[in-house]
Amino acid sequence: MRTVALRFAENFAPDCGTVATHEAVIRKLGYVWYGKLGSAVSAKTAGDILLNDDPRLLLIHSGGQDRWWCHIDAIKREVPPAEGIPSYYRDKAKDFGCWFRIRRFERAEPDVMSKCRVISSGRILTSASRHSMSPYFIIDYAAK
């Protein structure tokens, strides 16, 4: 499965954390928009992700051990309606280059990064993420 792995941090999130805050919106609306800061993923990458039987992306907690699969059903570049964006970053919405509509979070298996290969380098994500400051990686995930 081809998808992206995105790093996230808790710098601006409420005390309950990024994932819990996004899940609260899902409980209310059935979905939440997750914004990727900076440049958008390419249209080709977005298309590849959405072609999967179960489109999802991998969230990697920077400096932590949390890994989450985000089951998605849409990717867009324009800012989505504010109600679907967690309130703590609505005022920064224009800074996000890409938005993923998440329907469900699922904790990833502890060794998930060892099952992901970075497309650009061929390296395992565990190694690539340690030696790169990149905020995201295009990956192939192979469940073992």
Score class of each variant (00 low, 15 high):
101 R>Q: 08
77 R>Q: 14
121 S>Y: 10
95 D>G: 07
107 R>P: 05
89 Y>S: 05
128 A>E: 10
94 K>V: 14
31 Y>G: 01
87 S>Y: 04
97 G>C: 03
126 T>N: 12
51 L>D: 13
139 I>N: 00
84 G>S: 12
31 Y>C: 07
100 F>Y: 11
28 K>N: 12
71 H>K: 03
67 R>A: 04
54 D>P: 00
12 F>C: 07
2 R>M: 08
125 L>D: 03
37 L>A: 14
13 A>G: 09
32 V>Q: 02
72 I>D: 02
39 S>D: 12
130 R>K: 15
18 T>W: 07
46 A>I: 15
16 C>H: 11
95 D>R: 10
51 L>H: 10
2 R>E: 10
66 D>A: 06
81 P>D: 13
92 K>G: 08
144 K>C: 12
95 D>K: 15
25 V>F: 04
10 E>V: 03
62 S>Y: 05
133 M>W: 11
56 R>S: 10
13 A>N: 14
54 D>H: 06
87 S>C: 01
142 A>C: 14
104 R>G: 07
8 F>V: 02
134 S>E: 09
39 S>W: 09
82 A>F: 05
115 K>M: 13
4 V>C: 11
16 C>T: 09
7 R>N: 08
40 A>W: 06
117 R>S: 09
1 M>E: 04
68 W>G: 00
133 M>Y: 11
30 G>Q: 12
67 R>G: 01
7 R>A: 13
19 V>G: 03
37 L>N: 15
134 S>Q: 06
61 H>D: 00
134 S>M: 05
18 T>R: 05
121 S>Q: 13
61 H>Y: 04
75 I>V: 13
101 R>W: 02
143 A>F: 15
23 E>F: 06
48 D>N: 12
80 P>R: 03
141 Y>S: 04
